[in-house]
Computed example of a mutant assay.
Amino acid sequence: MPPLPHLQINPATGVPAYRQIMEQIAAYRSSGVLPAGSQLPSIRSLAKQLAVNPGTIVKAYNELEHAGIAVSQKGKGFFVTAIEQIASRKQRENELSESCQLLVQQASQLDIPFDRLIQLIQIEIKHHDKT
Rank of each mutant, 00 (worst) to 15 (best):
S31L: 03
M22G: 11
I57R: 02
N94F: 00
I43G: 03
P113V: 06
K90F: 05
E84P: 02
G75L: 06
G32L: 04
A26V: 14
M1V: 15
I86Q: 04
T81G: 03
G55H: 12
G14S: 07
R116F: 08
Q39R: 15
V80W: 00
D115W: 07
C100D: 11
G77R: 12
L110C: 08
L4Q: 07
S108E: 10
Q122G: 04
R44P: 06
D115C: 04
K126H: 12
C100A: 07
A107P: 08
S42L: 13
V15T: 15
T56P: 07
I21E: 04
K126F: 05
P2Q: 02
K76Q: 15
Q122R: 03
L102H: 14
D129L: 05
N53S: 05
G68I: 01
Q106W: 02
A36D: 10
Q39T: 14
S72W: 09
A82V: 09
Q109E: 11
T131G: 04
Q105L: 13
G37P: 08
P113I: 04
G32P: 10
A26L: 08
H6S: 14
P54G: 03
S88F: 07
N53H: 04
G77V: 15
S42W: 12
K126V: 11
I43T: 09
I21K: 01
L103I: 13
I9Q: 00
P41V: 08
P5R: 01
S38C: 13
G75F: 14
A82C: 12
L7Q: 07
K90D: 02
F79M: 13
